[in-house]
């Protein structure tokens, strides 16, 4: 995973709530067997509308997405995270994320930042008035900064440490292999097994 420390970029205001992962990346894109090449599928249906915010030339090259509440609901598809990253997003801001999406994003180095809806509103207004306004997402200090906006955000220390260092979860877990083996040895024998009968 790529490490995330601090990022400054332009932001796209997405004034939508309940953006589900079917909107982020429609199911027919899920047939791909790689982690890349999903950028054209991002918000595919909405991008057919020339007025959709991502189609506006002023937002080209933006790297921070500022979305409404309940972003990433629905399907567990990690392809939604890959699509956002493939397109160029480094961070997503919302007042509330769906659990599975949030977990997936942090495992891939896409920083999902939870801020009060009032701060989201302020970021929407700022980036609508001035699409070039820089927005900084600082994981070191757990803070989002933009003109007129300074907002602290929370992220548990363990997730922050993994992100700051770009650590791979599996190697961390395998350091505790003895614990896993000890647990396995004590499992009751009536637990299910998939071994074909």
């Amino acid at each position: 995973m790529e490490a995330f420390t601090t990022h400054t970029g332009r932001a796209v205001p997405l004034r939508r709530s309940n953006v589900d992962t079917d909107q982020i990346i429609p199911a027919h894109w899920l047939k791909k067997v790689t982690r890349d090449g999903f950028e054209d599928g991002l918000f595919e249906a909405w991008r057919k509308n020339p007025d959709f915010v991502l189609n506006r030339p002023v937002y080209q090259g933006a790297t921070v997405l500022v979305a409404g509440p309940d972003f990433g609901t629905g399907s567990s598809r990690e392809h939604a995270v890959w699509a956002l990253q493939n397109y160029g997003f480094k961070a997503v801001v919302s007042s509330r994320f769906a659990d599975i999406f949030r977990g997936n994003s942090l495992k891939n180095g896409l920083l999902t930042v939870v801020l009060d809806q009032k701060v989201v509103d302020a970021l929407w207004e700022l980036t609508e008035q001035d699409p070039n306004a820089p927005v900084t997402v600082d994981l070191q200090d757990r803070q989002v900064r933009a003109e007129g906006v300074t907002a602290d955000f929370e992220l548990d220390e363990n997730a922050r440490w993994r992100l700051l260092n770009g650590l791979d979860d599996i190697s961390i877990t395998l350091r505790n292999e003895d614990d896993i083996a000890a647990y396995e040895a004590a499992r009751p024998s009536y637990k299910p097994s998939t071994v074909q009968l």
């Binding site: 567990s76 598809r77 990690e78 392809h79 995270v81 599975i100 977990g103 997936n104 495992k107 891939n108 979860d169 599996i170 877990t173």
Partner: peptide
Amino acid sequence: GIGTSQVEH
């Protein structure tokens, strides 16, 4: 439900 990184994990 889990994502693909967790499937690998």
